[in-house]
Design a binder for these strands. Structure first.
Ligand code: MN
Ligand code: MN
Ligand code: ZN
Ligand code: ZN
Lengths: 142, 142
DNA sequence: AATTACCTGCAACTAAGTTGCATATTTCTT
DNA sequence: AAGAAATATGCAACTTAGTTGCAGGTAATT
């Protein structure tokens, strides 16, 4: 039997020891139905003014802490967020996939199938994490 | 005969069709003597209040446009800048090296010797640029 | 030295992010 | 199912980041 979204979300939140609130459910629904990564302003736009800005900041921070979402690096000041699809948990993210930013449509995608390569650094550096962000033109825009 | 810094800077600016001004020289000197990448607040700190914030923004933007500096992606809202050591020019950056962020001291470094690997994306994506940011512990901090 | 081109500082504004605290909502306990 | 405890939210107030127009200043060109 297939769980519906609401149920999934409920379990996700409970497993992360977060209480189930309207804001959190709405934001998770947004993540689930959206194609690419989302940035803060997307939430303000898509949720209208039904939720306070501060609540959205705090919700995203909570999701990050619990390993529900991850950040994607950018060269501008925006911060992009996407759902963790692997089994991330509190303080233990392992989203070892490549991210793609389309220069045409602006969408940022998680390429779950594309692993980050291992990088050989000069002697003396300890590597903890490798982020790869590719930019170019996406399938849709070609 | 070895050129001194001032002369180098002068030539760099003239070659980029930028006039030689105090702000630009000071900011380039800062880049040259600093170890890692710099962010906007570093300039305000290190230059004191001798220059207007706006001037610093515009100076960095001009350097970016001319291929004198490049940005380094981060997962926070800060933007880091570093000198281009390869032969970048107006609207044509090619800094194909890996960046390293130390989790201990916070320094962000250009690892000029470490090339970014080529990445094989799923069919349908056109790749224009690949950014690699490694985090971990640097030589000094180990 | 004068003219032109370009750069800078200021003011005013918009957007982004943080913190403390009172109130509201959710969860736990009985 | 009701009350107590724990947690989340909204608001206000504040800080930091970034943008734009414009007047005056500095650098380059002749
Ligand atoms: Mn991702
Ligand atoms: Mn670099
Ligand atoms: Zn696209
Ligand atoms: Zn370090």
């Amino acid at each position: 039997m297939v769980k519906n979204n609401r149920e999934q979300i409920h379990h996700l939140l409970r497993n992360s020891h977060l209480s189930v609130t309207e804001t959190r459910v709405k934001i998770l629904e947004l993540f689930m139905k959206s194609n690419g990564a989302l940035e803060h302003s997307d939430f303000e736009k898509k949720l209208g003014q039904s939720f306070d800005r501060v609540t959205i900041y705090r919700t995203l921070q909570a999701f990050l802490d619990k390993g529900i979402i991850h950040k994607i690096p950018t060269t501008d000041t925006s911060v992009r967020y996407a759902l963790c699809k692997s089994e991330c948990s509190e303080h233990d993210h392992h989203d070892h996939h490549v991210h793609f930013k389309c220069e045409e449509c602006g969408t940022t995608l998680c390429l779950e199938e594309t692993d980050v390569p291992s990088i050989q650094l000069p002697k003396g550096y300890a590597v903890h994490n490798v982020e790869v962000v590719v930019s170019g033109v996406c399938k849709q825009c070609k």
